[in-house]
Computed example of a mutant assay.
Amino acid sequence: MDIIRSKQFTADRAWGAKDIANMNGITTRLHWTDQAYKWHINDGQEVFAVLDGVVEMHYKQQGIEQSVLLESGDIFYASIGTEHVACPIGEARILVVESEGSV
Score class of each variant (00 low, 15 high):
43 D>F: 03
100 E>M: 07
26 I>H: 00
43 D>Y: 09
82 T>M: 12
103 V>I: 02
35 Q>G: 08
27 T>S: 05
31 H>F: 13
70 L>N: 14
55 V>A: 01
16 G>N: 08
7 K>D: 13
9 F>P: 04
23 M>Y: 05
73 G>R: 14
96 V>F: 00
28 T>A: 11
58 H>Y: 14
9 F>A: 08
41 I>Q: 00
16 G>W: 09
34 D>R: 12
24 N>M: 05
19 D>S: 06
94 I>E: 03
101 G>H: 05
23 M>F: 02
51 L>C: 08
5 R>V: 15
64 I>A: 05
14 A>V: 03
77 Y>Q: 15
54 V>A: 14
42 N>V: 04
97 V>K: 13
53 G>Y: 15
90 G>I: 07
29 R>G: 04
101 G>E: 01
1 M>I: 09
43 D>M: 04
59 Y>M: 04
79 S>P: 11
72 S>A: 15
94 I>L: 08
88 P>Y: 13
53 G>D: 13
31 H>M: 09
75 I>Y: 12
72 S>D: 13
18 K>Q: 05
57 M>R: 05
40 H>A: 11
102 S>Q: 07
70 L>C: 10
60 K>W: 03
27 T>F: 07
30 L>F: 02
25 G>D: 10
15 W>N: 10
27 T>A: 04
93 R>E: 08
4 I>N: 04
22 N>Q: 07
16 G>Q: 06
36 A>I: 01
11 A>R: 06
36 A>M: 03
36 A>T: 02
86 A>S: 13
85 V>W: 00
70 L>K: 12
83 E>G: 02
31 H>R: 07
85 V>E: 06
10 T>S: 10
39 W>Y: 12
16 G>V: 07
85 V>K: 06
82 T>K: 01
69 L>M: 06
7 K>W: 11
69 L>F: 02
37 Y>Q: 14
60 K>I: 09
92 A>E: 08
68 V>K: 04
74 D>K: 07
41 I>G: 05
9 F>K: 10
100 E>N: 03
16 G>Y: 08
88 P>D: 05
59 Y>S: 13
54 V>R: 06
97 V>E: 07
98 E>L: 02
69 L>W: 00
102 S>K: 00
72 S>C: 10
36 A>H: 03
68 V>L: 03
53 G>Q: 15
41 I>W: 01
8 Q>D: 15
43 D>L: 13
58 H>L: 12
67 S>F: 01
62 Q>S: 15
38 K>L: 06
32 W>A: 14
41 I>E: 01
93 R>P: 06
4 I>P: 00
103 V>D: 02
28 T>P: 00
27 T>Q: 05
50 V>N: 04
9 F>C: 11
52 D>P: 11
81 G>F: 13
82 T>Y: 02
70 L>R: 14
76 F>G: 09
46 E>A: 08
8 Q>M: 11
